[in-house]
Design a protein around this nucleic acid. Sequence first.
DNA 1: GTCTATAGAGAGATAGAC
DNA 2: GTCTATCTCTCTATAGAC
Lengths: 217, 217
Amino acid sequence: MFFIYICKKKSNIMRYKTDQATEERIKDAAGTLFTLKGYSSTTMRDIAAQAEVNLALVNYYFRSKENIFKIIMREKIQTFFNSIFPYLFDEQTSLQEKFTSVVEKYINTISQDPNLPLFVFGEIQKNPEEISSLFPMLASHNDILRESSFFKQLHKINPHLNPFHFILNFLGITIFPFIASPLLVNFGMESSENMKTIMEERKKLIPQWMNQMLLIE
Amino acid sequence: MFFIYICKKKSNIMRYKTDQATEERIKDAAGTLFTLKGYSSTTMRDIAAQAEVNLALVNYYFRSKENIFKIIMREKIQTFFNSIFPYLFDEQTSLQEKFTSVVEKYINTISQDPNLPLFVFGEIQKNPEEISSLFPMLASHNDILRESSFFKQLHKINPHLNPFHFILNFLGITIFPFIASPLLVNFGMESSENMKTIMEERKKLIPQWMNQMLLIE
DNA sequence: GTCTATAGAGAGATAGAC
DNA sequence: GTCTATCTCTCTATAGAC
Protein backbone atom coordinates (compact mmCIF):
# COMPACT_ATOMS: atom_id res chain seq x y z
CA MET A 1 0.00 0.00 0.00
CA PHE A 2 2.69 2.42 0.93
CA PHE A 3 4.55 1.68 -2.24
CA ILE A 4 1.51 2.34 -4.36
CA TYR A 5 0.84 5.57 -2.54
CA ILE A 6 4.32 6.82 -3.21
CA CYS A 7 4.15 5.92 -6.84
CA LYS A 8 0.81 7.52 -7.32
CA LYS A 9 1.98 10.66 -5.68
CA LYS A 10 5.09 10.76 -7.78
CA SER A 11 3.13 10.06 -10.88
CA ASN A 12 0.76 12.90 -10.13
CA ILE A 13 3.54 15.34 -9.59
CA MET A 14 5.20 14.21 -12.77
CA ARG A 15 1.99 14.46 -14.68
CA TYR A 16 1.61 18.14 -14.11
CA LYS A 17 4.99 18.84 -15.62
CA THR A 18 5.53 16.07 -18.10
CA ASP A 19 2.10 15.55 -19.57
CA GLN A 20 1.63 19.07 -20.73
CA ALA A 21 5.04 19.10 -22.32
CA THR A 22 4.44 15.76 -24.04
CA GLU A 23 1.03 16.68 -25.33
CA GLU A 24 2.38 19.94 -26.64
CA ARG A 25 5.34 18.20 -28.26
CA ILE A 26 3.02 15.80 -30.06
CA LYS A 27 0.79 18.61 -31.23
CA ASP A 28 3.74 20.59 -32.51
CA ALA A 29 5.09 17.58 -34.34
CA ALA A 30 1.72 16.85 -35.89
CA GLY A 31 1.30 20.49 -36.90
CA THR A 32 4.66 20.58 -38.61
CA LEU A 33 4.14 17.34 -40.48
CA PHE A 34 0.53 17.96 -41.49
CA THR A 35 1.27 21.42 -42.86
CA LEU A 36 4.29 20.11 -44.72
CA LYS A 37 3.01 16.84 -46.13
CA GLY A 38 -0.76 16.92 -45.75
CA TYR A 39 -3.05 14.50 -44.00
CA SER A 40 -2.53 11.28 -45.94
CA SER A 41 1.23 11.50 -46.33
CA THR A 42 1.69 11.91 -42.61
CA THR A 43 1.60 8.75 -40.51
CA MET A 44 1.05 8.40 -36.80
CA ARG A 45 4.50 6.81 -36.67
CA ASP A 46 5.98 9.94 -38.28
CA ILE A 47 4.34 12.08 -35.66
CA ALA A 48 5.54 9.90 -32.80
CA ALA A 49 9.09 9.91 -34.16
CA GLN A 50 9.12 13.68 -34.70
CA ALA A 51 7.81 14.23 -31.17
CA GLU A 52 10.26 11.66 -29.82
CA VAL A 53 7.55 9.69 -28.08
CA ASN A 54 6.12 6.23 -28.43
CA LEU A 55 3.49 5.59 -31.06
CA ALA A 56 0.92 4.50 -28.50
CA LEU A 57 1.22 7.84 -26.74
CA VAL A 58 -0.09 9.73 -29.72
CA ASN A 59 -3.29 7.71 -29.55
CA TYR A 60 -3.34 8.03 -25.78
CA TYR A 61 -3.48 11.82 -25.97
CA PHE A 62 -5.44 12.33 -29.15
CA ARG A 63 -7.45 9.12 -29.63
CA SER A 64 -7.21 9.02 -33.43
CA LYS A 65 -5.40 10.47 -36.39
CA GLU A 66 -8.55 12.13 -37.64
CA ASN A 67 -9.05 13.76 -34.28
CA ILE A 68 -5.55 15.17 -33.98
CA PHE A 69 -5.84 16.45 -37.53
CA LYS A 70 -9.08 18.24 -36.80
CA ILE A 71 -7.53 19.93 -33.79
CA ILE A 72 -4.53 21.07 -35.82
CA MET A 73 -6.66 22.11 -38.75
CA ARG A 74 -8.94 24.18 -36.59
CA GLU A 75 -6.00 26.00 -35.02
CA LYS A 76 -4.27 26.60 -38.32
CA ILE A 77 -7.36 27.96 -40.02
CA GLN A 78 -7.98 30.08 -36.97
CA THR A 79 -4.49 31.55 -37.24
CA PHE A 80 -4.90 32.02 -40.92
CA PHE A 81 -8.13 33.97 -40.71
CA ASN A 82 -7.41 35.84 -37.53
CA SER A 83 -4.56 37.63 -39.23
CA ILE A 84 -7.00 39.07 -41.74
CA PHE A 85 -10.59 39.09 -40.61
CA PRO A 86 -10.62 41.47 -37.65
CA TYR A 87 -9.09 44.15 -39.82
CA LEU A 88 -11.47 43.69 -42.71
CA PHE A 89 -14.51 44.25 -40.54
CA ASP A 90 -13.20 47.22 -38.61
CA GLU A 91 -15.48 50.16 -39.46
CA GLN A 92 -13.14 52.67 -37.82
CA THR A 93 -10.13 52.27 -40.08
CA SER A 94 -9.57 53.65 -43.54
CA LEU A 95 -8.84 51.53 -46.57
CA GLN A 96 -5.23 52.63 -46.37
CA GLU A 97 -4.91 51.52 -42.79
CA LYS A 98 -6.48 48.20 -43.65
CA PHE A 99 -3.99 47.59 -46.42
CA THR A 100 -1.00 48.31 -44.25
CA SER A 101 -2.16 46.53 -41.14
CA VAL A 102 -3.38 43.37 -42.86
CA VAL A 103 -0.21 43.07 -44.91
CA GLU A 104 1.98 43.66 -41.89
CA LYS A 105 0.11 41.20 -39.72
CA TYR A 106 -0.30 38.61 -42.39
CA ILE A 107 3.29 38.53 -43.56
CA ASN A 108 4.49 38.30 -39.98
CA THR A 109 2.18 35.40 -39.22
CA ILE A 110 2.96 33.41 -42.33
CA SER A 111 6.69 34.00 -42.07
CA GLN A 112 6.64 31.92 -38.92
CA ASP A 113 4.82 29.10 -40.69
CA PRO A 114 5.42 29.47 -44.42
CA ASN A 115 3.61 26.28 -45.38
CA LEU A 116 0.36 27.47 -43.83
CA PRO A 117 -1.33 28.91 -46.95
CA LEU A 118 -0.66 25.91 -49.14
CA PHE A 119 -1.84 23.63 -46.36
CA VAL A 120 -5.07 25.53 -45.81
CA PHE A 121 -5.97 25.89 -49.47
CA GLY A 122 -4.88 22.36 -50.26
CA GLU A 123 -7.01 20.78 -47.58
CA ILE A 124 -9.97 22.92 -48.52
CA GLN A 125 -9.65 21.76 -52.09
CA LYS A 126 -9.53 18.14 -51.00
CA ASN A 127 -12.41 18.49 -48.63
CA PRO A 128 -14.50 21.60 -49.29
CA GLU A 129 -17.28 20.73 -46.89
CA GLU A 130 -14.85 20.35 -44.02
CA ILE A 131 -14.43 24.05 -43.53
CA SER A 132 -18.18 24.47 -43.26
CA SER A 133 -18.28 21.87 -40.51
CA LEU A 134 -15.36 23.51 -38.71
CA PHE A 135 -16.91 26.95 -38.97
CA PRO A 136 -20.67 26.56 -39.22
CA MET A 137 -20.95 30.30 -38.72
CA LEU A 138 -19.61 30.78 -42.23
CA ALA A 139 -21.85 28.26 -43.88
CA SER A 140 -25.00 29.82 -42.50
CA HIS A 141 -23.96 33.39 -43.06
CA ASN A 142 -22.11 33.35 -46.29
CA ASP A 143 -22.43 36.94 -47.37
CA ILE A 144 -20.01 37.75 -44.63
CA LEU A 145 -17.28 39.06 -46.91
CA ARG A 146 -19.69 41.07 -49.02
CA GLU A 147 -20.91 42.86 -45.92
CA SER A 148 -17.47 43.68 -44.59
CA SER A 149 -16.27 47.23 -44.17
CA PHE A 150 -13.39 46.41 -46.49
CA PHE A 151 -15.72 45.38 -49.28
CA LYS A 152 -17.79 48.51 -48.93
CA GLN A 153 -14.79 50.79 -48.88
CA LEU A 154 -13.45 49.19 -52.02
CA HIS A 155 -16.78 49.63 -53.70
CA LYS A 156 -16.98 53.28 -52.71
CA ILE A 157 -13.55 54.14 -54.08
CA ASN A 158 -14.08 52.26 -57.30
CA PRO A 159 -17.76 51.56 -58.02
CA HIS A 160 -17.02 50.35 -61.55
CA LEU A 161 -15.40 47.07 -60.61
CA ASN A 162 -16.56 44.17 -58.51
CA PRO A 163 -14.70 44.56 -55.18
CA PHE A 164 -13.92 40.85 -55.27
CA HIS A 165 -11.40 41.64 -57.96
CA PHE A 166 -9.46 43.82 -55.56
CA ILE A 167 -9.75 41.32 -52.76
CA LEU A 168 -8.35 38.66 -55.06
CA ASN A 169 -5.54 41.00 -56.04
CA PHE A 170 -4.78 41.91 -52.49
CA LEU A 171 -4.66 38.34 -51.27
CA GLY A 172 -2.89 37.23 -54.41
CA ILE A 173 0.06 39.57 -54.18
CA THR A 174 0.30 38.99 -50.44
CA ILE A 175 -0.17 35.23 -50.15
CA PHE A 176 1.04 33.91 -53.48
CA PRO A 177 4.75 34.55 -52.85
CA PHE A 178 4.63 32.07 -49.99
CA ILE A 179 2.87 29.49 -52.09
CA ALA A 180 5.29 29.84 -54.97
CA SER A 181 8.53 30.24 -53.08
CA PRO A 182 9.64 26.57 -53.18
CA LEU A 183 9.22 26.67 -56.94
CA LEU A 184 10.82 30.03 -57.52
CA VAL A 185 13.88 29.01 -55.56
CA ASN A 186 14.34 26.38 -58.26
CA PHE A 187 14.23 29.11 -60.85
CA GLY A 188 17.05 30.98 -59.23
CA MET A 189 14.79 33.47 -57.59
CA GLU A 190 16.00 33.75 -54.09
CA SER A 191 17.49 31.64 -51.38
CA SER A 192 15.14 31.27 -48.45
CA GLU A 193 17.11 33.98 -46.64
CA ASN A 194 16.40 36.49 -49.36
CA MET A 195 12.76 35.52 -49.34
CA LYS A 196 12.59 37.14 -45.94
CA THR A 197 13.93 40.47 -47.18
CA ILE A 198 11.70 40.29 -50.26
CA MET A 199 8.67 39.94 -48.03
CA GLU A 200 9.82 42.81 -45.82
CA GLU A 201 10.05 45.03 -48.87
CA ARG A 202 6.58 43.98 -49.92
CA LYS A 203 5.08 45.15 -46.64
CA LYS A 204 5.58 48.70 -47.86
CA LEU A 205 5.02 48.06 -51.54
CA ILE A 206 1.75 46.16 -51.47
CA PRO A 207 -0.34 49.04 -50.07
CA GLN A 208 1.09 51.31 -52.75
CA TRP A 209 0.34 48.83 -55.51
CA MET A 210 -3.18 48.45 -54.23
CA ASN A 211 -3.72 52.18 -54.45
CA GLN A 212 -2.47 52.21 -58.01
CA MET A 213 -4.74 49.35 -59.02
CA LEU A 214 -7.80 51.06 -57.57
CA LEU A 215 -7.41 53.82 -60.14
CA ILE A 216 -8.52 51.62 -63.01
CA GLU A 217 -12.12 51.85 -64.03
CA MET B 1 -3.51 -23.91 -84.53
CA PHE B 2 -6.20 -22.37 -86.59
CA PHE B 3 -8.11 -21.42 -83.49
CA ILE B 4 -5.13 -19.74 -81.99
CA TYR B 5 -4.47 -17.86 -85.17
CA ILE B 6 -7.99 -16.52 -85.26
CA CYS B 7 -7.86 -15.44 -81.66
CA LYS B 8 -4.51 -13.78 -82.04
CA LYS B 9 -5.74 -11.93 -85.02
CA LYS B 10 -8.86 -10.82 -83.26
CA SER B 11 -6.91 -9.84 -80.22
CA ASN B 12 -4.56 -7.72 -82.29
CA ILE B 13 -7.39 -5.94 -83.96
CA MET B 14 -9.05 -5.38 -80.65
CA ARG B 15 -5.85 -4.19 -79.10
CA TYR B 16 -5.52 -1.33 -81.50
CA LYS B 17 -8.88 0.01 -80.50
CA THR B 18 -9.39 -1.09 -76.95
CA ASP B 19 -5.94 -0.83 -75.41
CA GLN B 20 -5.40 2.74 -76.33
CA ALA B 21 -8.77 3.68 -75.01
CA THR B 22 -8.19 1.78 -71.78
CA GLU B 23 -4.74 3.17 -71.21
CA GLU B 24 -6.03 6.65 -71.89
CA ARG B 25 -8.98 6.16 -69.60
CA ILE B 26 -6.70 5.06 -66.78
CA LYS B 27 -4.40 8.01 -67.31
CA ASP B 28 -7.30 10.43 -67.33
CA ALA B 29 -8.69 8.93 -64.16
CA ALA B 30 -5.31 9.11 -62.46
CA GLY B 31 -4.83 12.69 -63.59
CA THR B 32 -8.16 13.77 -62.23
CA LEU B 33 -7.69 12.06 -58.88
CA PHE B 34 -4.06 13.05 -58.36
CA THR B 35 -4.72 16.71 -59.09
CA LEU B 36 -7.75 16.68 -56.84
CA LYS B 37 -6.52 14.67 -53.87
CA GLY B 38 -2.76 14.45 -54.23
CA TYR B 39 -0.51 11.43 -54.35
CA SER B 40 -1.10 9.79 -50.98
CA SER B 41 -4.83 10.29 -50.79
CA THR B 42 -5.32 8.62 -54.14
CA THR B 43 -5.29 4.83 -54.18
CA MET B 44 -4.81 2.52 -57.10
CA ARG B 45 -8.29 1.22 -56.33
CA ASP B 46 -9.68 4.75 -56.71
CA ILE B 47 -8.02 5.05 -60.08
CA ALA B 48 -9.30 1.68 -61.25
CA ALA B 49 -12.83 2.51 -60.14
CA GLN B 50 -12.78 5.94 -61.74
CA ALA B 51 -11.50 4.45 -65.00
CA GLU B 52 -14.00 1.60 -64.71
CA VAL B 53 -11.37 -1.07 -65.08
CA ASN B 54 -10.00 -3.80 -62.88
CA LEU B 55 -7.34 -2.92 -60.33
CA ALA B 56 -4.81 -5.28 -61.91
CA LEU B 57 -5.07 -3.45 -65.19
CA VAL B 58 -3.69 -0.26 -63.74
CA ASN B 59 -0.52 -2.08 -62.79
CA TYR B 60 -0.52 -3.89 -66.12
CA TYR B 61 -0.32 -0.63 -68.02
CA PHE B 62 1.70 1.50 -65.66
CA ARG B 63 3.69 -0.94 -63.50
CA SER B 64 3.46 1.03 -60.25
CA LYS B 65 1.70 3.89 -58.55
CA GLU B 66 4.88 5.91 -58.40
CA ASN B 67 5.38 5.43 -62.12
CA ILE B 68 1.91 6.52 -63.12
CA PHE B 69 2.24 9.51 -60.83
CA LYS B 70 5.52 10.56 -62.43
CA ILE B 71 3.97 10.38 -65.86
CA ILE B 72 0.99 12.48 -64.79
CA MET B 73 3.17 14.91 -62.88
CA ARG B 74 5.48 15.44 -65.84
CA GLU B 75 2.56 16.17 -68.14
CA LYS B 76 0.86 18.50 -65.69
CA ILE B 77 3.99 20.50 -65.00
CA GLN B 78 4.64 20.63 -68.71
CA THR B 79 1.16 22.07 -69.30
CA PHE B 80 1.61 24.46 -66.44
CA PHE B 81 4.87 25.92 -67.66
CA ASN B 82 4.17 25.79 -71.35
CA SER B 83 1.36 28.26 -70.89
CA ILE B 84 3.84 30.79 -69.55
CA PHE B 85 7.42 30.14 -70.49
CA PRO B 86 7.49 30.52 -74.27
CA TYR B 87 6.01 33.99 -73.91
CA LEU B 88 8.41 35.13 -71.22
CA PHE B 89 11.45 34.37 -73.33
CA ASP B 90 10.19 35.85 -76.57
CA GLU B 91 12.51 38.73 -77.42
CA GLN B 92 10.21 39.98 -80.17
CA THR B 93 7.19 40.94 -78.08
CA SER B 94 6.70 43.98 -75.94
CA LEU B 95 5.96 43.85 -72.22
CA GLN B 96 2.34 44.74 -73.02
CA GLU B 97 2.00 41.88 -75.42
CA LYS B 98 3.51 39.51 -72.90
CA PHE B 99 1.03 40.54 -70.24
CA THR B 100 -1.96 40.03 -72.47
CA SER B 101 -0.85 36.83 -74.13
CA VAL B 102 0.31 35.09 -70.97
CA VAL B 103 -2.85 36.00 -69.09
CA GLU B 104 -5.04 34.89 -71.96
CA LYS B 105 -3.24 31.62 -72.44
CA TYR B 106 -2.85 30.86 -68.78
CA ILE B 107 -6.44 31.51 -67.78
CA ASN B 108 -7.65 29.40 -70.69
CA THR B 109 -5.40 26.51 -69.75
CA ILE B 110 -6.21 26.52 -66.05
CA SER B 111 -9.91 26.95 -66.61
CA GLN B 112 -9.95 23.50 -68.13
CA ASP B 113 -8.16 22.04 -65.11
CA PRO B 114 -8.73 24.40 -62.17
CA ASN B 115 -6.97 22.20 -59.64
CA LEU B 116 -3.72 22.30 -61.56
CA PRO B 117 -1.98 25.17 -59.71
CA LEU B 118 -2.69 23.84 -56.25
CA PHE B 119 -1.56 20.40 -57.34
CA VAL B 120 1.70 21.63 -58.82
CA PHE B 121 2.62 23.91 -55.93
CA GLY B 122 1.48 21.39 -53.36
CA GLU B 123 3.55 18.56 -54.73
CA ILE B 124 6.56 20.82 -55.10
CA GLN B 125 6.25 21.79 -51.47
CA LYS B 126 6.07 18.15 -50.42
CA ASN B 127 8.93 17.11 -52.60
CA PRO B 128 11.07 20.04 -53.73
CA GLU B 129 13.85 17.97 -55.27
CA GLU B 130 11.39 16.13 -57.48
CA ILE B 131 11.02 18.98 -59.91
CA SER B 132 14.78 19.12 -60.34
CA SER B 133 14.81 15.45 -61.23
CA LEU B 134 11.91 15.88 -63.63
CA PHE B 135 13.52 18.89 -65.28
CA PRO B 136 17.29 18.65 -64.82
CA MET B 137 17.62 21.51 -67.26
CA LEU B 138 16.29 23.85 -64.60
CA ALA B 139 18.49 22.58 -61.82
CA SER B 140 21.68 23.09 -63.80
CA HIS B 141 20.69 26.40 -65.27
CA ASN B 142 18.87 28.17 -62.56
CA ASP B 143 19.26 31.78 -63.60
CA ILE B 144 16.83 31.00 -66.34
CA LEU B 145 14.15 33.41 -65.16
CA ARG B 146 16.59 36.18 -64.46
CA GLU B 147 17.85 36.00 -68.03
CA SER B 148 14.41 36.02 -69.60
CA SER B 149 13.28 38.79 -71.89
CA PHE B 150 10.39 39.41 -69.50
CA PHE B 151 12.72 40.01 -66.57
CA LYS B 152 14.86 42.43 -68.55
CA GLN B 153 11.89 44.37 -69.84
CA LEU B 154 10.54 44.76 -66.35
CA HIS B 155 13.90 45.95 -65.15
CA LYS B 156 14.15 48.49 -67.95
CA ILE B 157 10.75 50.00 -67.27
CA ASN B 158 11.26 50.16 -63.55
CA PRO B 159 14.92 49.91 -62.55
CA HIS B 160 14.21 50.79 -58.92
CA LEU B 161 12.51 47.56 -57.97
CA ASN B 162 13.59 43.96 -58.16
CA PRO B 163 11.72 42.52 -61.18
CA PHE B 164 10.88 39.46 -59.10
CA HIS B 165 8.39 41.64 -57.28
CA PHE B 166 6.47 42.21 -60.49
CA ILE B 167 6.70 38.57 -61.50
CA LEU B 168 5.26 37.62 -58.13
CA ASN B 169 2.50 40.17 -58.57
CA PHE B 170 1.73 39.03 -62.07
CA LEU B 171 1.54 35.37 -61.16
CA GLY B 172 -0.21 36.17 -57.93
CA ILE B 173 -3.13 38.06 -59.41
CA THR B 174 -3.40 35.55 -62.24
CA ILE B 175 -3.01 32.22 -60.45
CA PHE B 176 -4.24 32.94 -56.94
CA PRO B 177 -7.94 33.21 -57.85
CA PHE B 178 -7.88 29.58 -58.91
CA ILE B 179 -6.14 28.51 -55.73
CA ALA B 180 -8.54 30.41 -53.51
CA SER B 181 -11.78 29.78 -55.33
CA PRO B 182 -12.97 26.76 -53.27
CA LEU B 183 -12.53 28.88 -50.16
CA LEU B 184 -14.07 32.04 -51.51
CA VAL B 185 -17.15 30.18 -52.61
CA ASN B 186 -17.63 29.44 -48.93
CA PHE B 187 -17.44 33.14 -48.23
CA GLY B 188 -20.25 33.86 -50.61
CA MET B 189 -17.96 35.07 -53.31
CA GLU B 190 -19.20 33.45 -56.43
CA SER B 191 -20.71 30.25 -57.59
CA SER B 192 -18.42 28.31 -59.85
CA GLU B 193 -20.34 29.64 -62.82
CA ASN B 194 -19.56 33.20 -61.89
CA MET B 195 -15.94 32.29 -61.37
CA LYS B 196 -15.76 31.82 -65.11
CA THR B 197 -17.04 35.32 -65.86
CA ILE B 198 -14.81 36.78 -63.17
CA MET B 199 -11.78 35.23 -64.83
CA GLU B 200 -12.88 36.46 -68.24
CA GLU B 201 -13.05 39.99 -66.88
CA ARG B 202 -9.60 39.59 -65.42
CA LYS B 203 -8.09 38.79 -68.80
CA LYS B 204 -8.52 42.44 -69.70
CA LEU B 205 -7.95 43.89 -66.25
CA ILE B 206 -4.71 42.18 -65.26
CA PRO B 207 -2.58 43.81 -67.99
CA GLN B 208 -3.96 47.20 -66.95
CA TRP B 209 -3.24 46.58 -63.30
CA MET B 210 0.28 45.50 -64.14
CA ASN B 211 0.88 48.76 -65.97
CA GLN B 212 -0.35 50.71 -63.00
CA MET B 213 1.88 48.82 -60.58
CA LEU B 214 4.94 49.41 -62.71
CA LEU B 215 4.63 53.12 -62.03
CA ILE B 216 5.71 52.83 -58.42
CA GLU B 217 9.33 53.49 -57.66
C1' DG C 1 -5.80 -7.72 -72.33
C1' DT C 2 -8.57 -8.68 -68.62
C1' DC C 3 -9.97 -10.91 -64.66
C1' DT C 4 -9.75 -13.38 -59.65
C1' DA C 5 -7.21 -14.30 -55.80
C1' DT C 6 -3.70 -13.44 -52.78
C1' DA C 7 0.96 -12.33 -51.03
C1' DG C 8 3.36 -8.93 -48.42
C1' DA C 9 4.06 -4.42 -46.43
C1' DG C 10 2.51 -0.75 -43.73
C1' DA C 11 -1.07 1.78 -41.68
C1' DG C 12 -4.20 3.01 -37.37
C1' DA C 13 -5.57 1.49 -33.14
C1' DT C 14 -5.61 -1.00 -28.61
C1' DA C 15 -4.59 -4.47 -24.75
C1' DG C 16 -1.90 -5.06 -21.04
C1' DA C 17 2.57 -4.75 -18.42
C1' DC C 18 5.13 -1.48 -15.85
C1' DG D 1 1.87 8.24 -18.43
C1' DT D 2 4.65 5.34 -21.00
C1' DC D 3 6.09 1.32 -23.22
C1' DT D 4 5.92 -3.44 -26.02
C1' DA D 5 3.42 -6.39 -28.66
C1' DT D 6 -0.17 -7.34 -31.59
C1' DC D 7 -4.70 -7.17 -34.01
C1' DT D 8 -6.99 -5.78 -38.01
C1' DC D 9 -7.61 -3.43 -42.04
C1' DT D 10 -6.25 -1.51 -46.37
C1' DC D 11 -2.98 -0.71 -49.73
C1' DT D 12 0.36 -1.98 -53.59
C1' DA D 13 1.75 -5.37 -56.47
C1' DT D 14 1.81 -9.82 -58.79
C1' DA D 15 0.80 -14.77 -60.04
C1' DG D 16 -1.99 -17.36 -62.77
C1' DA D 17 -6.46 -18.58 -65.15
C1' DC D 18 -9.04 -17.29 -69.13
